[in-house]
């Protein structure tokens, strides 16, 4: 352990603990920076160990004394490893207050392509990984009567569009799973927040032909953590997507299936 990681807790200077799953780039990396900036101790998880290490070093250096991010290389489809890793992280951080599931993949899928391999991969990363991680968080928070569970779902989960059916399915299912968690855990004092980002400037956006009004990952991260800390139930990021999706959700199918959106 580094010197920074052995600083004791002081009652008047709380350091909440957070886990970010899917942290090496995009929104996840921005979440790690934003959390350390706000004084959280962060466990950052992703597959790409080198990127993770660099991210954590940078975040720790610019954070307040005693605040740090620690890298944990991990593949969310390695389901069997998760319970042990979860306990290890909670012990290392010395507690847990927030878990953010951000891992998500969206391979390019042609409009006439039906590739089960790609579909399975997306369900495993975007949905089953979330269940594996957030079930553990739910169990702990249910007992300790505190905590924030956050998942980065997507506006894509609100409607099944013609592009990439599995991606829409995974995000739609994730939103429903989060709603169920919320309905279970509210009575135990646990906040469950579903984040539905619109266009955010990340590598995923490269597949979108005309992303109008995209916000940067850093801005998105700030809004996400604010929503989580406030205990919001569902938060569209940025908020105008709430209106856009309200309209889109209400387009009747006889029209929707003829649209090219």
């Amino acid at each position: 352990m580094t010197e920074r990681e052995t600083v004791p807790d002081r009652p008047l200077e709380p350091r909440p603990r957070a886990i970010v799953i899917g942290a090496s780039s995009g929104i996840g990396a921005a979440l790690v920076s934003e959390l350390t900036k706000r004084g959280y101790l962060v466990a950052a998880l992703a597959r790409r160990a080198d990127m993770l290490q660099e991210l954590c070093d940078t975040a720790s250096l610019s954070a307040a004394p005693g605040v740090y991010a620690r890298p944990y290389p991990h593949d969310v489809t390695d389901f069997d490893a998760i319970p042990e890793l979860f306990d290890q992280i909670v012990a290392d951080l010395g507690g847990l207050d927030m878990v953010i599931y951000n891992a998500g993949v969206m391979p390019a899928v042609g409009l006439d392509e039906f590739d089960f391999g790609k579909d399975k991969f997306q369900i495993e990363v975007n949905l089953l990984g979330a269940m594996a991680w957030l079930n553990l968080a739910a169990m702990r928070f249910q007992a300790s009567k505190q905590g924030n569970i956050v998942a980065i779902s997507s506006v894509s989960g609100d409607r099944g569009r013609r592009v990439n059916p599995a991606y829409h399915t995974s995000k739609g299912a994730l939103s429903i799973y989060m709603e169920s968690l919320r309905n279970r855990l509210t009575q135990h004092g646990v906040a469950v927040t579903t984040i539905k980002p619109g266009y955010v400037e990340t590598s995923m956006l490269e597949q979108v032909p005309n992303p109008r009004g995209a916000i940067s990952a850093a801005v998105a991260a700030d809004k996400i953590i604010t929503a989580a800390e406030k205990g919001r139930q569902v938060a569209y990021i940025p908020w105008r997507w709430e209106i856009i999706m309200l309209i889109i959700r209400h387009i009747p199918s006889f029209i929707f299936r003829r649209l090219s959106i």
Binding site: P11, G95, R140, A143, Q146
Partner: peptide, 17 residues
């Protein structure tokens, strides 16, 4: 997990699990 409990300072300004 069953034994986990939030242990709050009497003054409620801090606590840990």
């Amino acid at each position: 997990h069953d034994q986990l409990e939030r242990v709050e300072a009497w003054g409620r300004a801090s606590g840990s699990v």
